[in-house]
Simulated scan of single mutants.
Amino acid sequence: MQLTLDDTKNAKSDKPVFSRTNPFQAKVLKNINLNGTGSSKETRHVELSLKDSGLSYKPGDALGVIPSNDPELVAALISEMGWDEEAVVTVGKQGETMLLKEALTNYCEITLLTKKILQGAAAFTENEELQKLVLVENAAQLKEYCNGRDLLDMLREFGPWKATAQDIVSLLRKMTARLYSIASSITANPDEVHLTIGAVRYTAHGRDRKGVCSVLCAERVQEGDTLPVFVQANKHFFLPETLDKDIIMVGPGTGIAPFRSFIQELAVNKATGRSWLFFGDQHAASDFLYQGELEQYQRDGVLTKLDTAFSRDSDQKVYVQHKMLEHSKDLFEWIEKGAYFYVCGDKEHMAKDVNEALLTVIEKEGAMDRDAAEAYLKDMQQQGRYQRDVY
């Protein structure tokens, strides 16, 4: 293949290509809490600038954010071990050197424990409990120990340590990017990318825990700051090629994110297909994310149907799958006419319950037995008409 003059110019372009290994520093344009007073949740709507990044994305794609660790947790680790935060340590395969505080803040994963870390740490202590825990026959207990604990727990529980800061840093993995479904359409918001991030906070093993990236966004990232980001394409979650197809979207909680991107795309392209959104959360008054926008889209006819389930507003807990069953006749009619069905959100419970409800709808309205309903759903999946983005 011969290169034209233009191609050569592009190939030699001085513009950096931003990626997972070379993230773009995106400026924070907006960072607001979407939940109202009295909510037990905190969901951040974060708008980032992609100006001059050359980055683009499609509805359904994800944004990778490379976070930094909580300074309080870093300080607690350094204090626990009596380390010098300005000691120089070596990290990574390339043998990069940096100050200990910098390594623990921006380079190392310190909130996750693995079998490998505990096995490696056992060489630096005579603590009998740890020596026992890493034995092959105690694999189940070891796995159980790692669940919900972090590096600080391990260092507190299994000392005294005869390890240098370098010894411990060498056991740790490199910080991994956190992926979030993109909540905007680039066509509707040129040079911008929006995220919907639920702040993760919980107590386990006697200590308060915080999600590394979600609480960074909730507590420490201000408008004007930057976040290192890259775009992660999602080849298994996308709008139909032509926007005359009907779509059904099920996205409770932060699962709404990609569907905000879908709906913006439908609006800007004046799509002719119908769209139906099922959204759910705890309370209508405080947890109806993007309520004003969604209701406006419904008034404008961009969103054909909007059904909500607020689980804590009635004696019986009502979830999105209950709303699907309530509308089973219409739902099956849309599917029979070729509608695409999308689910985004919690993999553990919600996605399973929605799958179960979908099978029930197909069984009941299609007058099929369970095997036939499962075959019908499998066929939808093979046609790309049943897509899931679950985590």
Rank of each mutant, 00 (worst) to 15 (best):
residue 141 Q to P: 01
residue 141 Q to K: 15
residue 142 L to F: 03
residue 143 K to P: 02
residue 143 K to I: 11
residue 145 Y to G: 02
residue 146 C to P: 07
residue 147 N to S: 15
residue 147 N to M: 13
residue 148 G to Y: 08
residue 149 R to T: 13
residue 150 D to A: 11
residue 150 D to E: 13
residue 151 L to S: 01
residue 153 D to W: 12
residue 154 M to K: 05
residue 155 L to A: 06
residue 155 L to P: 10
residue 155 L to K: 08
residue 155 L to E: 07
residue 155 L to D: 07
residue 156 R to G: 13
residue 157 E to H: 11
residue 158 F to L: 06
residue 158 F to W: 02
residue 158 F to V: 05
residue 159 G to C: 05
residue 159 G to D: 06
residue 160 P to C: 04
residue 160 P to Y: 07
residue 163 A to V: 04
residue 163 A to L: 10
residue 164 T to Y: 05
residue 165 A to T: 06
residue 165 A to H: 02
residue 166 Q to K: 00
residue 168 I to K: 02
residue 168 I to H: 01
residue 169 V to H: 08
residue 170 S to Q: 12
residue 171 L to R: 06
residue 171 L to S: 01
residue 171 L to H: 04
residue 171 L to Y: 03
residue 172 L to M: 13
residue 172 L to Q: 03
residue 173 R to Q: 14
residue 173 R to F: 12
residue 173 R to G: 15
residue 174 K to R: 13
residue 174 K to G: 10
residue 174 K to Y: 08
residue 175 M to P: 03
residue 176 T to M: 13
residue 176 T to P: 11
residue 177 A to G: 10
residue 177 A to R: 03
residue 178 R to A: 09
residue 178 R to F: 04
residue 180 Y to C: 02
residue 180 Y to W: 10
residue 182 I to S: 04
residue 182 I to K: 09
residue 182 I to H: 08
residue 183 A to F: 08
residue 183 A to H: 09
residue 183 A to C: 11
residue 184 S to M: 04
residue 187 T to F: 07
residue 191 D to N: 15
residue 193 V to A: 14
residue 193 V to T: 07
residue 193 V to W: 03
residue 194 H to C: 07
residue 194 H to Q: 12
